[in-house]
Amino acid sequence: MNRVFSSEWIKIARPSTLLGWMGPVVLFAIMGTIFNFTEAATEAGQFRGPFGIAPGPAQLAAPDGWIIGMHSASSFIGLIALAIFATNIAREYEKGTIRILLVAEPRRIQLLIGKLLALSSFVVVIAAGATIITMLVSMALAPSQNISMDAWLSWQGLLELLKGFASISLATIVWGLIGGVLAIVARSAAISISIGVGFLFIFELLIGQFAEAIGTKLPATVLGALASGGTFTIDYSTALALSLVYGVASIAISLYIFIRRDVTD
């Protein structure tokens, strides 16, 4: 498994790959943070914009206030993670490189798990980069909006930071695992990303409109709640448990198909 992990990182650690994926995430996190701080001051936390409902000044001054921008950007980061997993795995089939991988490492469980671990670590690095930028932008904007940073820099603030980062990372990984299973089923990056985006961002919203009870249990809602530390409709522990179920189910389906399917062109 270590060999697969190291090998995979040779492919994904290229600056162009890292910056290409991290760039949009960081940009989105910065925009989300700027939106939160500017709208919080003017609309007392009730403004609804492209990044959701802006938090109020009190919420921004809370211990987790400095990474609230990440909550706003979490769905976008999840989408990027889905695309990273889907592109990486589907391209192995599209280009035929899956053959050389399986000739070098024919143990399919090890190969897939090693690959998923490498991709998971990659999206965590991206999430970490975006979190750091969000913190720095928050600290830069707070004085101009009269938001106190005292709670952020307390022990409680550091704990909230760690919890927030862990939640966002886990949600991002599960987004990626969903992208991975779609890629293994479809063996096409374009199709798997289209299905993922179509279901998670359109179909799921429609289901939520008609059947709220089911809607709150669907992946995008659950993962959004996990990344935000819980929402009004789904609490944190439920979101965590359901996210783990989605993650494990994705791995199990991926492995089942990957082990059984012949590698043909």
Partner: peptide
């Protein structure tokens, strides 16, 4: 104990020739 080239050679186009081999060497040990 087996080396193989299956049909058309396929590699990662963004990596150099030696880095492609490096990734394979790591993978196969």
């Amino acid at each position: 104990k087996v080396g193989a080239l299956v049909e058309a050679p396929v590699f990662y186009p963004g990596l150099s020739g030696s880095n492609n081999l490096k990734a394979l060497a790591k993978l196969g040990g």
